[in-house]
């Protein structure tokens, strides 16, 4: 039997919002370590790899590893029935053909449960090679969302140029062109507002803004986002999920293949 109880139910709601527009269906791979999900979008240009660690749950029982095939649009609709301050419990029998969600109000005066059919999905998992990235940019997640939204006014691609001075985002199109330069933050008094560029060597890559704007749906999960880049390697965009003490409860990682000038 699999059963996981999440006191901060809003976390699962936000996770669903961060993937439902990019993926149609995916499997939650549940094991003793936690709940993982890895899936590519239908065009195989972007991949989501997310994990909710077992110690982020108030209680977590996983008798044996199981894979729960889910239609994400349906799961997202059911999770919309949960209030932000609800406690969410997910349950599935080992030989399950259905998954149950239970939402409890904080005062336990309102308990709802929803059962959803599971799907048989062949979980084709890609191997993501461990990469020593040439550049890692850490910045406020709201800032990145703003850049992606603003530049998509100009064109459908963004050129991200990372040097030791900082990072520049550029876009051009029929309307004209635009550049947004972020300098490395000097005084890092408030960690989460800082822009930190860790550069081994300069990198310039081009990416689709359409996909980046899907990725920024994860911004409510984390005040910071990191962009990891190397020449001719997919971009990794990571939103870490930490608790109030800053301990890791998991992450949402997006990978995006670059666009190549030909």
């Amino acid at each position: 039997m699999f059963e996981a109880r999440l006191v901060e139910g809003s976390l699962l709601k936000k996770v669903m919002e961060s993937i439902k527009d990019l993926l149609n269906e995916a499997s939650w791979d549940c094991s003793g370590n936690g709940m993982c999900l890895q899936a590519m979008d239908s065009s195989h240009v972007a991949l989501v790899s997310l994990m909710l660690k077992s110690d982020g749950f108030e209680n977590y029982r996983c008798d044996r590893s199981i894979s729960l095939g889910i239609n994400l649009a349906s799961m997202s609709k059911i999770l919309k029935c949960a209030s932000n301050d609800d406690i969410i419990t997910i349950r599935a029998e080992d030989d399950a053909d259905a998954i149950t969600f239970m939402f409890e109000s904080p005062k336990q005066d309102r308990v709802s449960d929803y059962e959803m059919k599971l799907m048989n999905l062949d979980t084709e998992h890609l191997g993501i090679p461990d990469t020593e990235y040439a550049c890692v940019i850490k910045m406020p997640s709201g800032e990145f969302s703003r850049i992606c939204r603003d530049l998509s006014v100009l064109g459908d691609s963004v050129i991200i140029c990372c040097t030791k001075d900082g990072v520049r985002f550029s876009a051009k199109g029929d309307l004209g062109n635009g550049n947004i330069k972020l300098a490395q933050s000097a005084n890092v008094d408030k960690e989460e507002e800082a822009v930190v560029v860790d550069m081994r060597e300069a990198v310039t890559l081009t990416f689709s803004l359409r996909y980046l704007n899907f990725f920024t749906k994860a911004a409510p999960l984390s005040s910071q986002v990191s962009l990891s880049m190397s020449e001719d390697v997919p971009l990794m965009v990571e939103y870490k999920i930490n608790d109030k003490e800053g301990d890791s409860k998991g992450y949402v990682r997006y990978y995006l293949a670059p666009k190549i000038e030909d």
Partner: peptide, 14 residues
């Protein structure tokens, strides 16, 4: 024009 690559060009099928 920019050609959009696919992830399978970079990640390996298990």
């Amino acid at each position: 024009i920019n050609y959009q690559n696919k992830l399978v060009d970079y990640f390996f099928d298990r």
